[in-house]
Design a protein around this nucleic acid. Structure first.
Length: 464
DNA sequence: TGGACTTGTCATACG
DNA sequence: GGCGTATGACAAGTC
């Protein structure tokens, strides 16, 4: 039931006056709620404070509209504990009592103060942060719920006051290998192309540029890709290929070997010369030197001395085999030539099965070696990229956390201000006889749509 | 001497 | 089916 009241509100209260008006949304009895006239209007006694009330309501409206504001959240801040369908119980234990001689202030814990007295009226906020109970402590205050499917016991104050407010592996076993007496690791074929990866195709093609012993190559262009096709018919002249051997032509050191590898007479010079025969142009070839790409930089060994050892150290397994089996062409060609050229090269030399097997193994291992290098480089690049992404995500998380805290502070301030305005409005309500409502008997509640309702405390719940 | 690191190689899968 | 590539795993070399 709605009781007709005289209100100081400019537009007064409106009671929808139905038989269910005594029932709060959610089935809570509101039988003792002050009745408002059946016409829906509450007779208001305008007081000299009317102008102030207008201003107050304007403020209230402004703040109420802010409740519609929603912000994204990343955690339980927006979890769905908002819909609390518990029936209204009582107001006696509400921390925020308008009759409280010591009303909460906005300094200490405004949000707590607001929550205490308006826990049911702050639904929009709870929608934003249902964990406020956690933050500010549960008030133990249960208030009525104004469900949309039940007519309010009292017309929305706001709608009256503001007409506009109507819209609410494998084991590599070298033992099984015929050449297992010596390690094959640590020393490369010396023919590694400059990372013949797709993005390094140009450099890879440079491998086929003419070099000593293969100076009669001709340019082979297919489409927009050109590369030097060596003259496979030409004689292989290793007599003046005395450039320093490097098994890591893809390393930047090859770009300027005189800087990275100052010439020092080495006791294994004869081995170096042998390697120079096997890999005649790996380092002397300016193109090969140019092939050291930035991509290959990360593959430079942290142990530069390893290169020196490779340069003049013992022959690798394949190198030795090539020497023993008298492979008539350099190993770098075995590895780097295109398939057609490689087959053509083989066809122009009478090789026995052993030689053919060795050549094909050398080619396979050489290819795989480069592939392994590329694979490792990609792996490192991925790690770097992921670390960078991780840093960005962490920074963003911190930024969002700061923003959320900032927003929460602002929200609490608004809630506090809203509670003050509520109290101010309530204090100026008058009944039919012009008497103020007793704060012990009534409270001002705000529904989900932002409208204010005058509720009587200690309502009986037997209506449900 | 053991650990970390690099590099080559093999096996395997895939296009 | 051959070939090239990618990649995990292993082993050897180096510091």
């Amino acid at each position: 039931m709605c009781s007709t009241i005289n209100s100081a509100f400019p537009a007064s209260f409106i009671c929808e006056g139905s038989e269910n008006s005594n029932r709060l949304h959610g089935g809570v009895s509101m039988s003792s709620t002050p009745r408002i006239s059946a016409s829906g209007r509450v007779r208001a006694n305008y007081t000299p404070q009317q102008s102030e009330m207008d201003w107050t309501w304007q403020e209230l409206m402004a703040i109420t509209e802010l409740q519609e504001f929603e912000v994204p959240n990343e955690n339980s801040f927006e979890a769905g504990t908002y819909v609390n369908m518990e029936p209204m119980v009582h107001y006696g234990s509400c921390g925020m009592n308008l009759a409280d001689p010591n009303p909460p202030t906005c300094q200490a814990s405004p949000a707590a103060a607001f929550e205490a007295g308006y826990s049911d009226a702050m639904s929009p906020y709870q929608r934003l942060n249902p964990n406020m109970e956690i933050h500010y402590g549960h008030t133990g205050c249960q208030a009525s719920r104004l469900l949309p499917n039940a007519p309010p016991f009292q017309p929305p104050l706001m709608s009256l006051l503001d007409p506009m407010n109507t819209n609410h592996g494998h084991v590599k076993n070298s033992n099984g290998h015929p050449d297992d007496l010596e390690s094959d690791s640590g020393l490369s074929l010396g023919s590694s192309p400059p990372l013949a990866s797709p993005e390094n195709e140009v450099h890879g093609m440079l491998t086929y540029l003419p070099r000593n012993g293969y100076t009669n190559g001709d340019l082979d262009c297919t489409g927009d890709q050109c590369h030097m096709r060596p003259n496979l018919n030409g004689p292989v002249d290793y007599s003046h290929t005395f450039g320093s051997y490097s098994g890591h032509s893809y390393l930047p050191v090859a770009a300027n070997p005189q800087h990275m590898q100052p010439h020092v007479p080495h006791p294994h010079q004869h081995i170096t010369a042998m390697k120079q025969q096997l890999f005649p142009a790996t380092q002397r070839d300016p193109h090969a030197a140019h092939s050291s790409t930035p991509r290959a930089v990360s593959f430079q060994s942290p142990h530069p001395k390893t290169k020196d050892v490779n340069l003049s150290g013992p022959l690798t397994r394949d190198e030795r085999r090539a020497v023993v089996l008298q492979i008539p062409f350099p190993l770098d060609k075995i590895v780097n030539l295109p398939v057609d050229d490689f087959n053509e090269l083989l066809s122009r030399h009478a090789l026995n099965d052993t030689q053919l097997t060795l050549v094909r193994d050398i080619r396979r291992r050489g290819k795989n070696k480069v592939a392994a290098q590329n694979c490792r480089k990609r792996k490192l690049e991925n790690i770097v990229h992921l670390e960078h992404e991780l840093g960005q995500l962490r920074a963003r998380r911190e930024h969002l956390t700061r923003e959320r805290l900032e927003f929460q502070q602002n929200l609490n301030m608004l809630k506090c201000r809203l509670s003050e305005l509520h109290a101010k409005v309530f204090s100026q309500l008058r009944d039919e006889e012009g008497h103020p409502y007793s704060l012990e008997d009534y409270s001002l509640q705000q529904s989900n749509d932002g409208n204010l309702y005058l509720l009587q405390r200690n309502n009986s719940l037997d209506g449900e």
